[in-house]
Amino acid sequence: MKGQHVTITSEWTPREGERYVLGEGPRFVDGQPLIVDILSGRLIDSDSGRTLIQIDEPLGAVAPLTGRNGWIAAAGTGIALIDPDGVEWLAKPEVSADTPMRMNDGVADPMGRFWAGSMAYDNRPGAGSLYRVGVDRTVDRVLNDLTVPNGPAFSNDGSVMYLADSARGVIFRFDVDTTLGDLGPAVEWVRVEGGSPDGMCVDENDHLWSAVWGGSRIDRYAPDGTRTASVPVPVTQPTAVLITPDKRILVTSASFGFDQPQVDDGAVFVAETTVAAAPAARYGPSN
């Protein structure tokens, strides 16, 4: 694969060990690629397969905390801080929703805020929302009428946010006020064909990478929305993509929904590439 001078320089290698039901949320933290298995409530060191966190709620995504050990998590029906002392819920905004809900993907932005989406278990159209967690721990709903939000992902300076609504096949782009965290109007940036946009990341060149659920591929886009590359992966349901600082590319996948999953459905795949990306941003004030 070539595009904008980016090349995958090795074959995809599935990680040995467990095949996950809904592996997602890959993040590079303290030199290690971490993933979640959403429905089992686990945070996992992808290199070793070791479980770092186990909670009794679905675990959509995490970000490391600034200045202390622990995580902020999109989990269950809300947002929690998880550290060696236990779980502290900041808010459970979806606990009393009209239909059963869970949190899905989420990420910290370069300014230390955390953003996470929610979705209905039955994928009810428009039931989902996007929440912003300020560095002061306030939790605000900033978008509604979403169905299956994935991402968000941020440009390297934090001034642009990308958010996929997988059920609608659309990646939206928003300008971001980096001081206040306010979003500009939603722009339908990319409409994806042949699958649904899923988990995303941004590389050092501010190109967006997106897994394509049901499409057996990952796509790369320039900041103007031009697709510059499309990379086949050896599973039908890739769920998210991670570019690491040491120029590895990881793709998570799911065995969820198959009557008879294939041997590598739910695996984490690894290859080498010629582009890097920053480690995961941390949640919390920088000083």
Rank of each mutant, 00 (worst) to 15 (best):
T9W: 08
T13Y: 00
E18R: 14
V21P: 00
E24M: 14
V29T: 11
V36K: 01
I38L: 14
S40V: 07
D45F: 07
D45H: 06
S46T: 09
T51C: 11
D56R: 08
L65F: 14
G67E: 14
T77D: 11
G78H: 04
D83P: 09
L90F: 06
A91P: 08
P93W: 00
A97C: 06
T99W: 14
A108S: 15
P110Q: 09
M111W: 05
A116E: 09
M119T: 10
Y121Q: 15
N123C: 07
Y131F: 14
T138A: 15
P149K: 08
S155K: 03
D157F: 08
G158I: 12
M161S: 04
Y162Q: 10
G169M: 08
V176L: 02
V176P: 00
L180C: 13
G181I: 03
L183P: 11
R191S: 13
G195R: 01
C201W: 04
E204A: 15
H207V: 02
W209Q: 01
A211S: 15
G214C: 12
I218A: 03
Y221F: 15
A229P: 02
V235Y: 01
V235C: 06
L242G: 04
I243V: 15
K247F: 00
I249P: 01
A254K: 09
V263Q: 13
A267W: 10
V268L: 12
A277L: 10
P279H: 14
